[in-house]
């Protein structure tokens, strides 16, 4: 199964607002730490190394 790049989230505007709101009053450093936790939590949920590698590429990361 390839990385889903078509919209897969119901109510995209609502999700985006929720994401921004979740960090609205945070210090920058706390928000960055939260982002890292979020990546780790979601990565673990996905689990599939091929999909994770594809996502790293789509995000502009360098793959060895």
């Amino acid at each position: 199964m390839p990385l889903e790049t078509k919209l897969n989230i119901a109510d995209p505007d609502g999700f985006y607002q929720e994401l921004i709101d979740s960090q609205r009053d945070m210090e920058e450093a706390d928000a960055e730490l939260m982002n890292c936790k979020l990546v780790l939590l979601l990565a673990n949920h996905i689990g599939d190394r091929d999909i994770l590698r594809e996502a790293l590429k789509h995000a502009g990361g360098r793959i060895g």
Partner: peptide, 10 residues
């Protein structure tokens, strides 16, 4: 470092 700290907190 932030990823490292995130792992440790989680």
């Amino acid at each position: 470092r932030r990823y490292r700290d995130a792992v440790l907190e989680l």
